[in-house]
Simulated assay, not measured.
Amino acid sequence: MKNYLKETPILNYSKPSIQSLVKEKKWMELDTIERVKSIYNYVRDDIKFGYNVSDNITATQVLEDGYGQCNTKATLLMALLRATGIPNRIHGFTIDKALQKGAISGIWYKLSPKNILHSWVEIYVNETWYFLEGVILDKVYLTKLQEKNKDCKTTFCGYGAYTDNFENPPIEWNLNNTYIQDKGINQDFGLFDTPDEFYAKHQQKLGAFKRFIYRKIVRHRMNKNVKKIRNGR
């Protein structure tokens, strides 16, 4: 279990901002189940869905940004859980870019790679591994997305979601697996003890020029589109 609790350059949970948050939220005063639930809900809802500059930023950078996507929210979730003694690991995948349609559109969607790097956190509680993918979309954003597509009750693909239960996706954690993008998975890279190990082996399939354009232009447009949904427009 020591490997599932260790600190790394990406999981930099000894930094003051994370330690202060742990104290402020009084997570160490909660029992294991309630602690996981509270940390999970915090990363899901207080850290809004959005696109950071890259996947391999540190946990403190995700916290400072105040938003994240599957990979960066996974980093912060892992760091907060490890800071409070909850063992965890990361499971790497790729997902079909179709689930990003709407958040990204036009020429930028066409130029984006078909397979997008994806991950979820797995936690060890009560001698069981649980998968926490449902942390990606904050509830305000998801609720507005559901309202905008109220005729869809089952399979929905786009705007950061790919689920076969759009009306009531399994995003609440209570000793169960949670999901919101899992139906888009098309390649399994397996398990890694840390995101540092995962990103050392796998990165988004973008050349230097496309990576620059994503950081400087595309992600800002994507974040504007996400904000429009969250604001009900």
Rank of each mutant, 00 (worst) to 15 (best):
A208K: 10
K110I: 13
F49R: 00
L206M: 13
W120V: 05
S17W: 07
L5D: 13
K139H: 12
K73W: 03
V22A: 14
Y214L: 03
V218Q: 01
Y124M: 06
V121L: 10
K150R: 11
L132R: 03
M1Y: 12
N231R: 06
K150T: 01
F192A: 10
G66M: 04
K48M: 11
Y159C: 07
Y179R: 04
E172L: 10
G190R: 11
W27Q: 14
E64V: 00
R219Y: 00
A208P: 03
I217C: 02
K101I: 07
D138N: 15
E24I: 11
L80W: 02
Y109L: 12
C152G: 01
N176L: 06
G68W: 04
T178P: 07
Y141G: 01
N52P: 02
L137S: 08
A83K: 07
R89I: 06
K224D: 10
L11R: 04
R233M: 03
K48V: 04
K227V: 01
M222T: 02
K224Y: 07
H118L: 12
E29A: 15
N41L: 15
N149W: 10
V121D: 08
E127D: 14
S105P: 00
A83S: 13
T75L: 02
V43I: 14
Y130W: 13
I33H: 14
S14M: 12
K139Q: 14
G190A: 11
Y40Q: 12
S20W: 11
I171T: 12
Y109P: 02
G66E: 05
N223M: 04
A59R: 01
D164W: 00
G102F: 09
K2H: 13
W120L: 12
I90M: 07
Y159M: 06
G50I: 00
F49D: 00
G232Y: 07
Y199K: 11
N223E: 04
F212R: 03
N176C: 14
I217W: 04
T194N: 13
I86Q: 01
L191K: 11
Q61I: 02
H202N: 14
N126Y: 11
T154M: 03
E197W: 08
N231W: 01
M28P: 03
I95N: 07
A74F: 01
K210E: 04
W129H: 04
V43K: 09
I136T: 10
K97I: 09
E34Q: 15
V125Y: 08
R89Q: 07
T194W: 09
R219V: 02
M1A: 13
R211H: 06
R89D: 05
D193R: 07
A79G: 11
G102Q: 08
K139T: 14
V43Q: 08
S14E: 14
N223G: 05
E34M: 15
D196S: 15
L206A: 07
T128P: 03
N3I: 05
P16E: 14
L145F: 05
Y13D: 12
C70W: 01
L77T: 02
S105M: 10
M1W: 08
G106L: 09
Y159L: 02
T128E: 13
N41G: 10
D65G: 00
C152Q: 10
S14G: 11
I90R: 01
W173T: 03
K110D: 13
T84W: 04
M78V: 02
P9Y: 13
